Deep mutational scan, measured.
Amino acid sequence: AEKTGIVNVSSSLNVREGASTSSKVIGSLSGNTKVTIVGEEGAFYKIEYKGSHGYVAKEYIKDIKDE
């Protein structure tokens, strides 16, 4: 049951290796980017990222929809 969301930041949002603010940053997404959410862990969504997965803070994702 995948969902999509939109990155809701003015600059960019860090994509992390794990569901923690201390996890390594593996990339970033600019505002209004559409993401595919494959799961959630605590305050983070697990998303599809560059052929693999990454984690982003839930508070910066809006317009969550079921695909």
Rank of each mutant, 00 (worst) to 15 (best):
A1G: 15
A1Y: 11
A1V: 10
A1N: 14
A1F: 10
E2A: 14
E2F: 06
K3T: 09
K3L: 09
T4F: 07
G5D: 02
G5W: 02
I6G: 03
I6S: 05
V7W: 01
V7T: 08
N8T: 13
N8V: 14
V9C: 07
V9R: 07
S10V: 12
S10W: 05
S10L: 11
S11H: 10
S11D: 15
N14F: 11
V15G: 00
V15E: 00
V15F: 02
V15A: 01
V15R: 00
R16C: 05
R16I: 05
R16E: 01
R16T: 12
E17I: 11
E17P: 01
E17H: 09
G18Q: 13
G18M: 14
G18L: 14
A19W: 05
A19I: 06
A19H: 06
A19K: 03
A19Y: 04
S20P: 02
S20F: 08
T21S: 15
T21Q: 13
T21C: 07
T21A: 13
S22A: 12
S22G: 13
S23V: 03
S23Y: 04
V25C: 06
V25A: 05
V25M: 06
V25E: 04
I26K: 03
G27Y: 04
G27W: 05
S28D: 07
S28T: 14
S28H: 15
L29V: 10
L29S: 01
L29H: 01
L29T: 01
G31F: 15
N32M: 13
T33A: 15
T33Q: 10
K34G: 04
V35W: 01
V35R: 00
T36G: 05
T36E: 05
T36L: 09
I37N: 00
I37E: 00
V38T: 09
V38P: 00
V38C: 05
G39D: 09
E40K: 04
E40M: 09
E40P: 02
E40H: 06
E41Y: 09
E41D: 12
E41A: 08
E41K: 08
G42Q: 06
G42S: 06
A43G: 14
A43M: 13
A43C: 07
A43F: 12
F44M: 04
F44L: 02
F44P: 00
F44N: 03
F44A: 03
F44Y: 13
Y45N: 01
Y45E: 01
Y45L: 07
K46F: 05
K46C: 05
I47M: 02
I47C: 01
E48M: 14
E48N: 12
Y49F: 15
K50G: 14
K50Q: 13
K50R: 11
K50C: 08
G51S: 07
G51Y: 07
G51A: 09
G51E: 10
S52P: 01
H53D: 05
H53N: 06
H53Q: 07
H53Y: 14
H53T: 10
G54A: 11
G54T: 01
G54W: 02
G54N: 01
Y55E: 00
V56S: 01
V56L: 04
A57W: 10
A57S: 15
K58L: 03
K58V: 05
I61T: 02
K62Y: 13
K62W: 08
D63W: 09
D63F: 11
D63A: 11
D63R: 07
I64E: 07
K65M: 13
K65D: 10
K65N: 14
D66R: 04
D66M: 08
D66N: 11
D66W: 07
D66L: 10
E67C: 06
